[in-house]
């Protein structure tokens, strides 16, 4: 058992921030870099969380397999989402992806034989790697930090590569890129699969940390939270997404120190997120480090 250097409260916060960094940076790949108005990212996160939890609790899969399967399965759903929506433009695409998010939550609630519906899945085991079980929160934090670092590094490499450059070109002028001989639809598939994969593994980290998940973790308010972080950080800015994950997740912690009752802290947090979102859209739509506009 490693020594606890930092308080459990901070450890817990940092674990969530790490998970959100993966979730938000992967959303930025589709939303910011590729210009896909994807409002269904949280559904891919949910699919990853449930996949990993069910594989371990129902089928006793080893963690590594469940973890990777969470990514692959979520990536597959990302593929399906683009396949289904490729004909739609602008806000209809956004709405179809939002509709997809609603449907996923609804299925999680109704496929009771598989998901236990609103009761959720309890007793999700802690991950074990190479015979070592990650038991304490502190070691879980180290694990999350490593996964987050590797994920961000990979996405960073992708966006800086020639492939990443044509993702950005797809966002700026799709027709202009097609007449240069690039298959932009295929590019969108690839972007969504990669983005879905990382959302899925973030979901796996989320499920195994909490050891309990239910559909309420993946509602509309969660979509607003990840969108707020991406927009505050700035579209097509990985640095911005990371910084904004810290800022946005830490701000509502103020409510705790005001000694407010928990019945106010929950909604209060949502109110803060919504206010930040509306304010930033109105006064600084490019966020902290954004280079591009949301269109």
């Amino acid at each position: 058992m490693p020594v606890e250097f930092i308080s459990p409260y901070i450890t817990n916060l940092l674990i969530f921030i790490g998970i959100y960094i993966i979730l938000v940076v992967s959303l930025n790949l589709t939303l910011g870099y590729t210009g896909m108005l994807n409002l269904g990212h949280v559904a891919l996160f949910a699919i990853g969380a449930y996949t990993s939890a069910l594989l371990m609790t129902r089928l006793d899969f080893p963690f590594v397999i469940a973890f990777l399967a969470a990514g692959i399965f979520a990536g597959f759903f990302g593929y399906v989402l683009v396949l289904a929506t490729k004909k739609l433009k602008g806000d209809y695409f956004a709405l179809a992806t939002l509709g997809f998010a609603f449907i996923v939550v609804n299925l999680l609630l109704n496929l009771q034989g598989l998901t236990h519906g609103p009761l959720g899945i309890p007793g999700i085991p802690k991950p074990s790697l190479f015979g070592l079980t990650i038991q304490s929160n502190f070691s879980y934090l180290i694990f999350v930090a490593i996964v987050a670092f590797v994920s961000v590094f990979i996405i960073y490499k992708i966006v800086k590569s020639p492939f990443g450059r044509i993702l950005e070109a797809t966002r700026d002028d799709e027709i202009g890129l097609r007449v240069l001989g690039k298959n932009t639809v295929k590019l969108k598939y690839k972007a969504m699969i990669i983005s879905g994969f990382f959302a899925g593994i973030a979901g796996s980290l989320f499920a195994h940390y909490l050891s309990f998940i239910d559909p309420s973790s993946f509602h509309l308010s969660e979509i607003i939270l990840v969108l707020t972080i991406v927009i505050v950080g700035g579209l097509a800015s990985i640095k911005g997404s990371i910084l904004a994950s810290f800022v946005i997740l830490l701000i509502p912690e103020v409510l705790r120190f005001l000694a407010l009752p928990s019945s106010i802290i929950g909604p209060g947090r949502q109110i803060i997120y919504a206010l930040i979102l509306i304010t930033i859209l109105m006064y600084k739509p490019r966020g902290l480090f954004g280079r591009v506009d949301l269109e």
Binding site: S161, P162, F163, R165, I166, A169, L187, I194
Partner: peptide, 12 residues
């Protein structure tokens, strides 16, 4: 110009 020149950038 690189986008125009390169034919391999679609391959991740």
């Amino acid at each position: 110009l690189e986008i125009a020149l390169l034919e391999s950038d679609e391959k991740l």
